[in-house]
Amino acid sequence: MGNAVKLKVNGEIHDVDAEPDTPLLWALRDLVGLTGTKFGCGVALCGACTVHVDGLPRRSCVTPISAVGEAEVLTIEGVGKTPVGKAVQDAWLKVEVVQCGYCQAGQIMQATALLTADPAPDDAAIDRAMTGNICRCGTYPRIRAAIHAAAKQRVA
């Protein structure tokens, strides 16, 4: 106790009382109260917990808060305020990607990271960047389509 750490999440500073080795995932969910970021595997195998740290994708389940420092954390709750994130969310709705929806926060954060690095990815580039994100409902074909749609919208 008494390990107050400051985390900057979606532009706001939060005081978090947790050990330095606490995964960012649990700090966000249980202590900051942002539950949109999901727990899937705990060992970076599924991508459900993907957030951005200083603009780059990170699996928050294996990112200790000590590694975050003063970096900016962006979660699903805040990604809609970025142009790319908004385009991705809109495309997700347009293509009706969602089924159970549990993995989609991670998928959207990962897709946003992809489109930020590569504004017009082809199928192979999408596969390479997205294949770390598991969806058991099988929304992959629609995710692929939605990423194309978001890319197109960004260009248009």
């Binding site: 969910r29 942002l34 539950t35 949109g36 970021t37 999901k38 727990f39 979660t75 699903i76 709750e77 809609g80 969310q89 997700w92 709705l93 009706e96 990607v97 969602v98 929806g101 549990y102 989609q104 926060a105 959207i108």
Partner: peptide, 14 residues
């Protein structure tokens, strides 16, 4: 869909 895309949907875990 909307709540599942913006992170506001409440699953049991949430």
């Amino acid at each position: 869909s909307a709540a599942k895309v913006d992170g506001s949907a409440v699953f049991g875990l949430d």
